[in-house]
Each structure stands twice: as C-alpha cells, then as structure tokens.
Design a protein around this nucleic acid. Structure first.
Lengths: 109, 109
DNA sequence: ATTTATTATCGTAATATTGCAATATAAATA
DNA sequence: TATTTATATTGCAATATTACGATAATAAAT
C-alpha cells in the first residue's frame, strides 16, 4: 500500500481494517481453510499444501499471527498452528451489524 | 502488493480474498459504517465525513463497488450509494464456517 | 449555451506487499 | 558435537496500493 492515514481513523476502524487485510490474500484464505480442515498443523504441512516457498508461507503465517487470526504452540522442534478465536471474534461483530442492516432497511435511493 | 499467484488458488479463495482485501482499509471500513448509519448517501457526503480528498474517496468507492460491497444509483446529478448484499453474502458464509469450527473443536496441539 | 454541482479519471510520488534465494536460528537425534 | 528437521529472518526485485492535484466527464439548473 501507499501512505495510509491511519491516524485519521478510529482505533476500531483501523483494527477491523487490519484484520480484513490479513484475511485478504488467497494464500492466507487457503491457510485458514486448511486449519479448519485439519484443526491444527505445522508450517511444513502448509508448505506442502500451498504452491509457495517456505519463506513465503512463513511470512503469511506471521501476518495471520500478528493480526490475531492464528496462534502457534511450540511442539518439539516444530510449531503447531491453529485458528485464534480472538481475531475472528472481532470481525464477527462487524459482520453481524452489517447483516442486521442488510436484512432490514437496505434500499438504494 | 507484489506478484500474487492467483492462478494457483481456487476461484473461491481468490474471491474471498478480493472481498476481504476490499474491506481491509480504514477508509473503506468508515464508508461501510457510514452507509449503515445513513442507509444511503452520495459521494460528496462521504468526502465531508472522511479526512480524504474527493479523488481518493472516489477511488475507494470504486474498489468497494468492484468487489460487490456497495452499489450506486444515479440520483439527479449525483450518485446514491448503499451497501450491496451480494458481496457481503459471500463472506458471510465463510465466517459462518470459521465460527462453527471455533465453537467446536479448536484446540491448538 | 453557460454555469454549477457532482463524480470519475489521469498522472505521479511515496509507500506497502509479495515472493523467494540465501542464510540464520532452534530443537531433536544420532 | 555434528547432523537433521523445522521455522524464521534478511535482502532484494517486481508489483500493487494509497493519496492527491489537475483535469475531464456528466447531469441538472439557469
């Protein structure tokens, strides 16, 4: 991105944007879907699943972790990843408000 | 962004990523929130609401419209924007699956 | 037809993202 | 301790995003 004027927006707006942005990449969608499928797995499993090199997958995992969408536990010499409810809970509320609005009073002009 | 290897991912993964990416900016979150608040409004209203210049707002509206998250109707010499259920419906399903997973079997290793 | 109001587009500078090779780090095991 | 396995970090090239001034396009009103 270019210069995003985050200081002009509310904390909530910036937080929601950060979460959505973290989800907004096909590789990270694929990672989330894989974690739903297998519940938890290590990084190298995802490297085998995705058409991306190990450093790239590691970077995507880092972004998801920073956003609070996944968490990782040390398991031997590997790190076991799974979804993190914290991040998803925050967006959930936003979409609930959106959907409530759409169910009722949405008509364009 | 850099080179995103969209061709290696499923259509669904790319579509979800596109939607989330469109939401993933504080200005676009603010636009969505404003549209929920007032139901529908014209571009210049949003320009007055946000700390951004008119061309920038116009660009953000275009991105939201391309993603299917808002729609615009010609109203006099202005364009009346409101939320578009099509885009939001698609993400809704994704988050429902995520939340269903998190309610049940989420434990990290 | 000209003016006014509203929105879109173009061009461009600044910055962010993506992807990966090379390399570093950390834990387990021989 | 050396090796293997698993993950993270660094550095960099290619590309995308953001923001806005200048300008164009469009539609109403005068």
């Amino acid at each position: 991105m270019g210069i995003s004027k985050t200081e002009h927006f509310t904390e909530e707006q910036n937080e929601l944007a950060t979460l959505a942005k973290a989800i907004g990449h096909p590789a990270r969608i694929a990672i989330i879907q894989h974690l739903i499928k297998v519940n938890s797995c290590i990084c190298s499993d995802i490297v085998n699943e995705l058409p991306l090199a190990q450093p790239t997958v590691s970077q995507h995992l880092k972004e998801l972790k920073n956003a609070g969408l996944i968490k990782g536990n040390l398991e031997g010499n590997a790190i076991c990843y799974c979804l993190d409810e914290n991040g998803f809970e925050k967006i959930k509320n936003f979409f609930e408000i959106v959907n409530k609005h759409l169910e009722n009073k949405n008509q364009c002009c």
